[in-house]
Amino acid sequence: MRCLYIFNRNGMCLHYHVWLRSLMTLSPQQDQKLMFGMLFSLNSFTAKIDPVSSGKENNPPCSFYSFRTNTYKLHFMETASGIKIILLTDPRIGDLREALMHIYSNIYVEYVVKNPLYSPGQPFRCELFNMALDHYVKTLQ
């Protein structure tokens, strides 16, 4: 595992977590903005280029769930409420769609959304979330 981003629908980075990232060429703000912008464009790209279901309003737009380079793999999930979860990992790792869903349902919703002190739409720092996330991510490797 390298790092994790959580964005809300407005492009606000709610959470950024690093496990291992030796190189960071941009400032955190630029880095997050670039990440969100790429996801946004790639999402509209995948929907527009879709040769099977495009043009029909009844079908929900298709989306991508990962891409891989020679040094890392990016896993992506978006919920209907616009929460985007991005996980960067080693390129050799397999399909993590279920793991991202688990992070959303069992960690983000339980420890952040249900936290009465959290104001929705704001970045969060939550000890329990970090612990649960660390613990879960260790089981994936």
Binding site: E57, T79, S81, M101, Y108, V109, V113, P120
Partner: peptide, 18 residues
């Protein structure tokens, strides 16, 4: 605005088309 995430994470529904 909070409940929706709880709902989506447990209800296992897909995006509604209409």
């Amino acid at each position: 605005i909070r409940l929706i995430d709880d709902f989506l994470s447990k209800a296992n529904v897909t995006r509604c088309s209409e």
